[in-house]
Design a protein around this nucleic acid. Structure first.
Length: 466
DNA sequence: TTAGGGTTAG
């Protein structure tokens, strides 16, 4: 009988099998009956916390952390810092900086914090767009000796705030403290210099890292430099740099290297060279990813205005097992609308779910704006219906143009319905509707509408619209 | 635990 008992080992296996996080939580809280009180292993805590963190079920995750805190205060193995790092990162990805900071000091993890946890927190805060000074305060307060990774994150924060000089100062500081820079340090610095347009300094850094620090440039360093060259309009120099990479046995070319080159080549009218790049990738066994395809879609739609070519790219993506995302489709929708081809855009949007991608708020806004720009307000009205149903609001400009358009149609009933629907998604701009209303409505209707809209603004009268 | 590439609107 004892052998059949459901142990923490069995629970861990069951948690691994259960893909639905809510079901996994129920399983964790109510393990099948066992003769003795159930003892949770650290592994079970680890599994459920990671699952809840990934699913962003934070309140549930916090309650499990509290249980862990009270259970780990007794003797036994301590929760690993790696788990703490998962929790902190999850809060960073969810843009919850205060929660990330609280997690860092959570009593469920009684062990001493190392640079690893500190670095994870710094990175989470950087994800939340925290300014460099906040990160420096965190470093100071933690009292943990920084390592190269700490400095790399701080340098990136400096660059993100637009100060390459500060990034360089941090580099000097790490050298003074005897911390050896890594290839990531140089990758960060080169990218920062390129973003700031300081290409010469970036190329100097590529030399210095080898000569003075014995660190070889990798694909990250090369890709940043190639992008920098393209932005200066020197695509050929970027292509030469790619050849330099190919000539080095220790370097592996990847999809990112090629993605960097695609749009710049389209921009200068060299789409034939892009075909050559794709062939080259194939020859090297590099699979084109979404970044490469999306760059091609933008090239065909915006530079070439060749929608046959763009749709062919979509087909290639499907054939090659690369799933087009909303951005891929939005690029096409935007291009079509810009040329007044809103019918084609509308057909594509309708077909998106069948193709495995649901239109997002950007898709609808572009289609809506495209129809308004073409003066097709009744068509736009249909799109608005779908948007409101999904809780999407049109852009401020789009809503205004639309209301003005409906006003010109002179259909009072439609105008009333439009204003109500716009109000539902908070897209009512007062200047727009007041102007529209004053043009077409008689005083009594105007007064009634105004009342309705006031009550809508006070979030109390949605039923009046139906 | 840290760095590179692409793209839609506003």
């Amino acid at each position: 009988m004892a052998r059949n008992k459901f142990s923490s080992y069995h629970l861990a296996a069951a948690l691994r099998r259960e893909l639905d996080p809510a079901a996994a939580l129920r399983l964790f809280l109510n393990p099948p009956a066992s003769a003795t009180p159930f003892r949770y292993s650290l592994r079970c805590y680890d599994l459920i916390i990671c699952r809840l963190a990934a699913a962003r079920l934070f309140p549930a995750m916090e309650s499990i952390l509290s249980r862990l805190a009270s259970s780990s205060s007794s003797s036994g193995p301590r929760p690993r810092e790696q788990l703490l790092c998962r929790v902190i990162s999850a809060y960073g990805r969810a843009r919850l900086p205060a929660a990330a900071r609280r997690a860092f000091t959570h009593p469920a993890f009684p062990g001493r914090r190392t640079a690893r946890a500190l670095n994870t927190l710094l990175h989470a805060l950087l994800d939340c767009r925290a300014p460099l000074r906040d990160l420096l305060v965190v470093c100071h307060d933690a009292g943990i000796p920084p390592d190269a990774c700490t400095y790399n994150i701080l340098m990136r924060a400096a660059a993100a705030s637009g100060s390459v000089d500060h990034a360089r100062q941090l580099f000097d500081e790490m050298l003074r403290r005897g911390i050896a820079p890594t290839v990531v340090t140089f990758g960060t610095l080169v990218a920062a210099l390129c973003d700031a347009g300081q290409l010469e300094d970036a190329f100097d850094m590529k030399e210095v890292m080898v000569r003075q620090y014995d660190v070889l440039p990798n694909a990250y360093v090369y890709t940043s430099l190639m992008k920098g060259l393209c932005e200066k309009g020197d695509v050929d120099a970027a292509l030469r740099l790619k050849e330099e990479m190919a000539g080095k046995a220790d370097l592996v070319l990847d999809s990112a290297v090629y993605a960097t080159l695609v749009r710049p080549l389209f921009r200068v009218g060299r789409k034939g060279a892009v075909v050559g790049l794709l062939e080259e990738m194939k020859g090297r066994g590099i699979v084109a990813d979404r970044a490469v395809y999306n760059a091609m879609l933008a090239g065909f739609c915006k530079d070439e205005k060749d929608f046959g070519g763009a749709f062919a790219v979509l087909d290639d993506m499907r054939k090659n097992g690369c799933k087009a995302d909303a951005v891929s489709y939005n690029t096409l929708v935007a291009g079509l609308c810009k040329l007044g081809r809103w019918r084609d855009a509308s057909e594509l949007v309708e077909d998106m779910p069948r193709r495995g991608c649901h239109p997002d708020v950007v898709t609808y806004r572009m289609l809506f704006d495209g129809m308004c720009a073409a003066g097709e307000f009744l068509e736009a009205n249909q799109v608005l219906d779908e948007m409101v149903f999904k809780g999407f609001a049109p852009s401020k400009d789009g809503a205004q143009k639309f209301v003005e358009g409906i006003e010109r149609e002179g259909d009072v009933v439609l105008l009333e319905s439009v204003l109500c629907r716009l109000a539902k998604v908070n897209a009512l701009v007062s200047s727009g509707w007041e102007k529209a209303v004053s043009g077409v409505l008689n005083e009594a209707t105007e007064l009634r509408l105004e009342k309705q809209l006031d009550s809508l603004r006070n979030h109390s009268g949605f039923d009046q619209c139906n």
